[in-house]
Amino acid sequence: MSSQRSILLVEDNPDDVDLTRRAFQRAGFTQPLDVVEDGVEALDYLFARGAHAHRASVPLPSLVLLDLKLPRLNGHEVLRQIRADVRTRFLPVVILTSSDEEKDLVESYSHGCNSYVRKPVSYTEFVEAARQLGLYWLALNRAPESGVHG
Protein backbone atom coordinates (compact mmCIF):
# COMPACT_ATOMS: atom_id res chain seq x y z
CA MET A 1 0.00 0.00 0.00
CA SER A 2 1.12 3.61 0.32
CA SER A 3 3.39 3.50 3.36
CA GLN A 4 6.14 1.08 4.30
CA ARG A 5 6.15 2.07 7.94
CA SER A 6 5.59 -0.91 10.17
CA ILE A 7 2.44 -2.14 11.84
CA LEU A 8 2.81 -2.76 15.57
CA LEU A 9 0.91 -5.78 16.87
CA VAL A 10 0.64 -5.88 20.68
CA GLU A 11 -0.39 -9.47 21.37
CA ASP A 12 0.76 -12.06 23.90
CA ASN A 13 -0.90 -15.12 22.35
CA PRO A 14 1.54 -16.75 19.86
CA ASP A 15 -1.35 -18.39 17.97
CA ASP A 16 -3.04 -15.00 17.46
CA VAL A 17 0.29 -13.47 16.38
CA ASP A 18 0.73 -16.21 13.78
CA LEU A 19 -2.87 -15.91 12.64
CA THR A 20 -2.57 -12.12 12.28
CA ARG A 21 0.73 -12.43 10.38
CA ARG A 22 -0.74 -15.02 7.98
CA ALA A 23 -3.97 -13.03 7.55
CA PHE A 24 -2.09 -9.85 6.61
CA GLN A 25 0.16 -11.77 4.21
CA ARG A 26 -2.83 -13.50 2.63
CA ALA A 27 -4.57 -10.13 2.30
CA GLY A 28 -1.51 -8.85 0.38
CA PHE A 29 -0.10 -6.30 2.80
CA THR A 30 3.67 -5.97 2.67
CA GLN A 31 4.31 -3.66 5.64
CA PRO A 32 6.58 -5.17 8.29
CA LEU A 33 4.59 -6.52 11.23
CA ASP A 34 6.48 -5.84 14.45
CA VAL A 35 5.24 -7.79 17.47
CA VAL A 36 5.57 -7.06 21.17
CA GLU A 37 4.08 -9.34 23.81
CA ASP A 38 3.08 -7.04 26.66
CA GLY A 39 2.02 -3.52 27.49
CA VAL A 40 5.35 -2.38 28.93
CA GLU A 41 7.21 -3.53 25.83
CA ALA A 42 4.63 -1.78 23.63
CA LEU A 43 5.34 1.55 25.33
CA ASP A 44 9.11 0.93 25.20
CA TYR A 45 8.78 0.27 21.46
CA LEU A 46 6.70 3.39 20.81
CA PHE A 47 8.78 5.71 23.00
CA ALA A 48 12.18 4.15 22.07
CA ARG A 49 13.08 3.15 25.62
CA GLY A 50 15.02 0.25 27.10
CA ALA A 51 15.61 -2.61 24.65
CA HIS A 52 13.91 -0.49 21.98
CA ALA A 53 16.10 2.63 22.44
CA HIS A 54 17.53 2.01 18.95
CA ARG A 55 14.12 3.04 17.54
CA ALA A 56 14.67 6.71 18.45
CA SER A 57 15.33 7.61 14.79
CA VAL A 58 12.76 5.20 13.33
CA PRO A 59 9.32 6.56 12.39
CA LEU A 60 6.35 5.50 14.45
CA PRO A 61 4.35 2.61 13.02
CA SER A 62 1.52 3.47 10.66
CA LEU A 63 -0.90 1.49 12.82
CA VAL A 64 -1.07 -0.15 16.26
CA LEU A 65 -3.19 -3.27 16.71
CA LEU A 66 -3.67 -3.53 20.46
CA ASP A 67 -5.03 -6.44 22.47
CA LEU A 68 -6.61 -5.57 25.82
CA LYS A 69 -5.65 -8.57 27.94
CA LEU A 70 -1.87 -8.26 28.19
CA PRO A 71 0.76 -9.16 30.79
CA ARG A 72 2.41 -6.46 32.92
CA LEU A 73 0.27 -3.57 31.63
CA ASN A 74 -3.17 -4.01 30.07
CA GLY A 75 -4.25 -2.55 26.75
CA HIS A 76 -6.41 0.14 28.34
CA GLU A 77 -3.41 1.57 30.20
CA VAL A 78 -1.22 1.33 27.08
CA LEU A 79 -3.85 3.26 25.12
CA ARG A 80 -4.18 5.87 27.88
CA GLN A 81 -0.40 6.48 27.82
CA ILE A 82 -0.31 6.60 24.01
CA ARG A 83 -2.98 9.31 23.99
CA ALA A 84 -1.34 11.23 26.85
CA ASP A 85 1.93 11.77 24.95
CA VAL A 86 2.19 14.44 22.25
CA ARG A 87 4.41 12.15 20.12
CA THR A 88 1.75 9.45 19.84
CA ARG A 89 -1.51 11.30 20.48
CA PHE A 90 -2.72 10.90 16.87
CA LEU A 91 -1.23 7.45 16.18
CA PRO A 92 -3.99 5.20 14.80
CA VAL A 93 -4.80 2.53 17.42
CA VAL A 94 -7.20 -0.30 16.68
CA ILE A 95 -8.25 -2.48 19.59
CA LEU A 96 -8.13 -6.06 18.32
CA THR A 97 -9.48 -8.25 21.08
CA SER A 98 -11.56 -11.29 21.89
CA SER A 99 -13.48 -9.27 24.48
CA ASP A 100 -17.13 -8.65 23.68
CA GLU A 101 -17.78 -6.86 26.97
CA GLU A 102 -19.50 -3.48 26.76
CA LYS A 103 -17.27 -2.04 29.51
CA ASP A 104 -14.14 -2.80 27.43
CA LEU A 105 -15.71 -1.18 24.37
CA VAL A 106 -16.72 1.96 26.29
CA GLU A 107 -13.38 2.23 28.11
CA SER A 108 -11.44 1.80 24.84
CA TYR A 109 -13.31 4.61 23.13
CA SER A 110 -13.13 6.81 26.22
CA HIS A 111 -9.34 6.49 26.10
CA GLY A 112 -9.26 7.41 22.42
CA CYS A 113 -9.05 4.24 20.36
CA ASN A 114 -9.74 4.77 16.67
CA SER A 115 -11.60 1.50 16.22
CA TYR A 116 -12.65 -1.56 18.23
CA VAL A 117 -12.64 -4.91 16.44
CA ARG A 118 -13.60 -8.19 18.03
CA LYS A 119 -11.35 -10.98 16.75
CA PRO A 120 -13.37 -13.23 14.45
CA VAL A 121 -13.42 -16.88 15.43
CA SER A 122 -12.93 -18.46 12.01
CA TYR A 123 -9.73 -18.14 9.98
CA THR A 124 -11.67 -17.03 6.88
CA GLU A 125 -13.45 -14.27 8.81
CA PHE A 126 -10.16 -13.21 10.43
CA VAL A 127 -8.44 -12.91 7.03
CA GLU A 128 -11.33 -10.81 5.74
CA ALA A 129 -11.25 -8.60 8.85
CA ALA A 130 -7.46 -8.15 8.43
CA ARG A 131 -7.94 -7.27 4.76
CA GLN A 132 -10.57 -4.66 5.60
CA LEU A 133 -8.51 -3.24 8.49
CA GLY A 134 -5.44 -2.99 6.29
CA LEU A 135 -7.30 -1.50 3.37
CA TYR A 136 -8.85 1.20 5.50
CA TRP A 137 -6.02 2.05 7.91
CA LEU A 138 -3.06 1.55 5.55
CA ALA A 139 -4.48 2.72 2.22
CA LEU A 140 -7.48 5.00 2.71
CA ASN A 141 -7.01 6.70 6.07
CA ARG A 142 -4.82 9.79 6.39
CA ALA A 143 -3.21 10.46 9.76
CA PRO A 144 -0.73 13.10 10.96
CA GLU A 145 2.87 11.91 11.06
CA SER A 146 3.10 12.78 14.77
CA GLY A 147 1.20 14.57 17.48
CA VAL A 148 3.21 17.78 17.06
CA HIS A 149 1.11 19.78 14.60
CA GLY A 150 -0.36 23.27 14.56
Rank of each mutant, 00 (worst) to 15 (best):
V127L: 02
H111N: 12
E77W: 08
D100E: 15
T97Y: 08
E77R: 15
R89F: 08
E128Y: 03
G134S: 13
R89T: 13
S122E: 14
L73A: 08
N114L: 00
N114I: 01
T88M: 10
D100N: 13
V94T: 11
I95P: 01
G112V: 09
L79Y: 09
V106E: 12
L79W: 10
P92K: 15
V106C: 04
I95K: 02
R87D: 14
E102D: 08
E107W: 01
V106S: 06
D104E: 09
N114V: 01
S122Q: 12
R80N: 10
H111A: 06
G112T: 11
V93E: 14
R83P: 03
W137D: 09
Q81T: 13
S108W: 03
V93I: 13
E77L: 15
H76W: 13
E107K: 02
R87H: 14
S99L: 14
E101D: 08
T88V: 13
S99P: 10
T88F: 09
D104L: 06
D85P: 05
S108M: 03
D100F: 05
E107H: 02
H111M: 12
Y116D: 12
L138K: 01
R118F: 00
R131N: 10
L138S: 04
Q81L: 15
G75I: 12
C113R: 04
S110E: 15
N114K: 00
Y136R: 02
A84K: 09
E128R: 05
V117Q: 12
E128K: 05
